[in-house]
């Protein structure tokens, strides 16, 4: 009777020990918390930081933009996390605030690798010429060149929260 109890306790202990070891090993193999579909707030400044993207426009180039084709606009993307990002997809949508001219011009670029702390400047040749009005619309006499221009930039990377910056340019 005593030996049966001994074997039962021993087997239970061995089961818990083996199970714990497997769970610990499984946790070693997971990616950081930032891969959660719902981003969690940072609890403290200590420990590894989540992948974090920072996006910015070249203010100098924004100031110089005109309502014409073939202009250069530089977007800078920075990896503010501590892990390397294997790829960052960037998109710039350019459109008029006037929805009577619904055309959106889109520009896409992918940055292959972005090391922690690295900043990559991406040059885009953008077209800010006034769009031709849609003929079916009655508002044909308005000047499309008088509307503000919207430049909406987004950056996405696996594991990082997407970032959005919107520049509004007055005519």
């Amino acid at each position: 009777m005593r030996s049966a109890l001994f074997w039962l306790l021993g087997a239970s202990f061995a089961f818990f020990l083996t199970g714990s070891a497997f769970l610990v090993l499984a946790n070693f193999g997971t990616a950081p918390r930032a891969n959660d579909p719902i981003p969690q707030p940072e609890l403290s400044d200590e420990g590894p930081r989540n992948p974090e993207l920072a996006l910015s426009f070249s203010e100098e180039e924004l100031e110089a933009l005109e309502r014409r084709q073939d202009q250069t606009l530089t977007l800078s993307i920075e990896n503010r996390g501590e892990g390397e990002l294997k790829s960052v997809d960037m998109e710039l949508a350019v459109y008029s605030e006037d929805k009577a001219y619904p055309r959106v011009r889109r520009y896409r670029e992918t940055v292959a690798k972005l090391a922690p702390g690295e900043v990559e400047a991406v040059e885009l040749a953008v077209d800010l010429s006034p769009p031709r009005p849609v003929e079916s619309l009655a508002v044909l006499d308005e000047d499309p060149g008088s509307a503000r221009q919207v430049l909406e930039a987004r950056a996405y990377a696996p594991g990082a929260a997407p970032v959005v910056k919107t520049a509004v340019v007055a005519p």
Binding site: E63, E97, R148, E152, V164, K165, A167, V168, A170
Partner: peptide, 19 residues
């Protein structure tokens, strides 16, 4: 009033005073 370009940290659909 915009005297020059202005950059916001939100999508255009969430902005008020820009338009």
């Amino acid at each position: 009033v915009l005297s020059g370009p202005k950059v916001y940290g939100s999508p255009a659909k969430d902005l008020s005073s820009a338009f």
